[in-house]
Simulated assay, not measured.
Amino acid sequence: MIAPDPLTPEGAAVIDLHEQLEDLEERTGEWPGADVVDLLGTWLAEFDFTRAPAAARWVAGNVWVLRRQDRHEDEVTLWADETSALASLAQHARSNWDNVEGGDGIPASPPASDRRAVDLYYGPRDERGDEDYWLYVDDIGRLASTVPAPDGFLFPDGASCARANSAAVFHPMIGPDDEGLPAIETGGVLVFAYLDADMQAVRVSVDLDTADEQVVRADGTIPLHVEVGSATVFSAGARRVPAQSRPGLMRRLIRRVRRMCWWRGD
């Protein structure tokens, strides 16, 4: 059941209407039709139904942001991981090592460790002069529309998705000499997850060529949302829909109002 959030304008409005109707019923012992109409008219006037629904913000991954500043430039670069960003910063430090060489505790040659090279080159933050840097991780946002796709495409509903998920098939390798790869098949989509000795990594690949037509849009693309842990690393075509729930306050209100005999003026 939906629980209105009083911290949102919509939730606060629903709670306010509920309280007004409860007060009306306490005073009159019923819901007089004319009074309810007046309450609903005033309440609905607070909403703006002319605007398009606001797009929902999703986190579509994250990135390491490196900002490096000196007397000549203020540069911002983006990196997939902290190690790569630090290596880039260390490369700059080593190429300008003569700026700090000869200082207290500074060796003649930069150290091999990227972290050590950066720490020695820039020094303590409160003692830095013309040169400084900032390195931090930040989310990559993506706005996803909550309205239906313009081409009329409808992704399978909850029941259809549950049936497809329950029919998922695992395709294992048949021994170490099998030239195939382990994969799970759901809705015709093949997801391979395996250890790749050439890349020295756990590798995940998705094959969409055999996807069921129900998940393929008119332009041939397929909505895809990929997460690793709690982080979204890829999202394209995904569209969040309102949460489904059992009839709540507003549906009960509508049903009750419809049952009223408006022509009697109750």
Rank of each mutant, 00 (worst) to 15 (best):
T8K: 08
V14T: 13
E19H: 10
G29Y: 01
G29Q: 03
W31N: 01
D38L: 02
L39V: 00
W43V: 07
A45W: 01
P53H: 03
P53W: 02
A54R: 15
A56L: 11
R57V: 13
W58L: 12
V59P: 02
G61P: 03
N62C: 09
V63G: 02
W64V: 15
Q69M: 08
D74F: 02
L78E: 10
D81W: 02
E82Q: 12
R94W: 08
S95K: 13
N96P: 00
N96T: 11
D104S: 13
A108I: 00
A117Q: 06
L120Q: 12
E127M: 11
R128I: 00
R128K: 06
D132K: 13
W134R: 15
V137D: 07
L143I: 01
D151Q: 07
D157Y: 04
A159M: 09
C161A: 15
F170L: 08
F170V: 12
M173A: 14
G175C: 12
P176Q: 15
E179H: 05
E179R: 10
G188S: 11
G188F: 10
Y194G: 06
V202H: 13
D207Q: 09
L208G: 07
D212C: 06
D212V: 05
R217T: 02
D219H: 09
I222E: 11
L224F: 07
H225W: 08
V226N: 07
A236C: 05
A236D: 09
G237D: 00
G237K: 06
A238I: 00
P247A: 15
L253I: 05
I254Q: 14
I254W: 07
R256S: 14
V257C: 11
R264Q: 09
D266N: 10
